[in-house]
C-alpha cells in the first residue's frame, strides 16, 4: 500500500475541488473540507494518510491540525489502509432486528476475517457501521456508494463475487464521478 508516488490530485479532481470551493463565500473555503476529503479518499487508495491530510491542508490553505481534527471525527474517513472493497454492514436497531448479526458473522466466516480486518489479498475490509437510513429494507450493507438492501446470504455471496471479479476500488465518492 505504501508507495512513494507524489501526492497530487488529478486534474479532474482539482477542477471539481475548485468548483466546490466556489460554493462557499469568500474566505469560507474551509467549508469544502468534507467533500475534499471524500475526493481524497477516492484519489489516494481509499484512505487518508497523514501525508494526504497535510496535502489537503495545503490545498485549502489551513493548518494540518484542522484537517486531522475533522478527519478523525467523521467515521467515513479511513485513517488506515483498507481493502479495495470496504464492506459496511449496518448493525443498528432495525437492521439488528432483521438479522444484521447473521450478515456480519457470515461475511466473517466466508472471508476469514473479523470485523475491522482486511483480507490478505487486500480485496475486502469488513466494517460494521451505524444506521444508514435503510431500515425498511433491512438487513443492508453499503459498498462504495451503493446500498445493497434486503440481504440474504445468497445475495451476499453474489455481491462479493461480483466485486472480487471486478477487482476495482470502491469509494463513497466513486472515482468516475470525479470527472464531470
Amino acid at each position: 500500500m505504501a508507495t512513494n508516488k507524489e501526492i497530487k490530485f488529478s486534474d479532474d479532481a482539482l477542477a471539481l475541488i475548485e468548483k466546490i470551493i466556489k460554493r462557499y463565500p469568500e474566505g469560507k473555503h474551509k467549508s469544502a473540507i468534507l467533500p475534499i476529503l471524500h475526493i481524497a479518499q477516492a484519489e489516494f487508495d481509499g484512505w487518508l494518510s497523514p501525508e494526504v491530510m497535510d496535502y489537503v491542508a495545503s490545498v485549502l490553505k489551513i493548518q494540518p491540525i484542522e484537517v486531522y481534527e475533522v478527519a478523525t471525527f467523521y467515521t467515513m474517513f479511513n485513517l488506515k489502509p483498507v481493502g479495495k472493497c470496504l464492506i459496511e454492514v449496518c448493525h443498528t436497531g432495525p437492521c439488528w432486528l432483521m438479522g444484521a448479526e447473521d450478515v456480519v458473522r457470515y461475511i466473517e466466516k466466508k472471508l476469514g476475517i473479523k470485523n475491522g480486518e482486511t483480507t490478505a489479498d487486500g480485496m475486502f475490509t469488513l466494517k460494521t457501521v451505524e444506521c444508514l437510513a435503510s431500515c425498511g429494507t433491512a438487513p443492508m450493507m453499503q459498498i462504495g456508494e451503493t446500498y445493497h438492501e434486503n440481504l440474504t446470504l445468497e445475495k451476499v455471496d453474489t455481491i462479493l463475487e461480483e466485486h472480487r471479479n471486478a477487482g476495482v476500488r470502491r469509494t463513497h465518492w466513486e472515482k468516475e464521478k470525479i470527472k464531470s
Binding site: 474551509k30 467549508s31 468534507l34 484542522e66 481534527e69 467523521y74 467515513m76 474517513f77
Partner: peptide
Amino acid sequence: HCGAGAYICGEETALLESLEGKR
C-alpha cells in the same frame, strides 16, 4: 453539501459547525 459520518450532525448547530468545515 455532503457530511462524512456523524449522527450528531443532525443536531442543527452541529450541522452548522460541520458545514463550516469543522468537527
